[in-house]
């Protein structure tokens, strides 16, 4: 691959990405951010994080027959319950990974 092709893309991609990242932060000292805006900002995790979670789980082609290949969806539901109960990121992540491993490798033949 031509080096100038690579670096042209990388430089513009890096500058563009940084511009997006710094955009509102750069003007934060000069603008008054209203309480209304802050209230809406508090909805950003609810607005975007489920959009990472749902497709990653829903469209994943699984391998466990008795769950029709939807073991990730099944484990995700359990993980939500564990997370609500424990309120711990560490416990939630360990539980999710171990539960998925257990179902795929120990329960795959069920």
């Amino acid at each position: 691959m031509d080096a100038s092709y690579f670096w042209t893309i990388i430089i513009f991609l890096a500058l563009g990405t940084f511009s997006i990242r710094i955009s509102v932060i750069a003007i934060s000292g000069r603008i008054q951010i209203s309480d209304r805006a802050k209230e809406l900002f508090s909805y950003i995790p609810a607005a975007i994080l489920p959009a990472f979670i749902a497709p990653a789980v829903f469209f994943h082609q699984g391998q466990v027959n008795w769950l029709q290949g939807k073991e990730r969806l099944f484990v995700l539901i359990l993980t939500v319950l564990v997370s609500l109960k424990t309120r711990s990121t560490v416990v939630t992540i360990i539980f999710g990974l171990v539960a998925l491993y257990a179902i795929v490798h120990l329960g795959g033949g069920l």
């Binding site: 508090s42 995790p45 939500v80």
Partner: peptide
């Protein structure tokens, strides 16, 4: 076989739940 990529959706589960403060969230 470890399905570490599953760590992305489940860590987001753990991180989004505390931000859901009431019914509209």
């Amino acid at each position: 076989s470890w399905s570490l990529d599953f760590g992305v959706p489940i860590s987001f589960v753990a991180l989004v739940l505390p931000t859901l403060k009431n019914k509209s969230y």
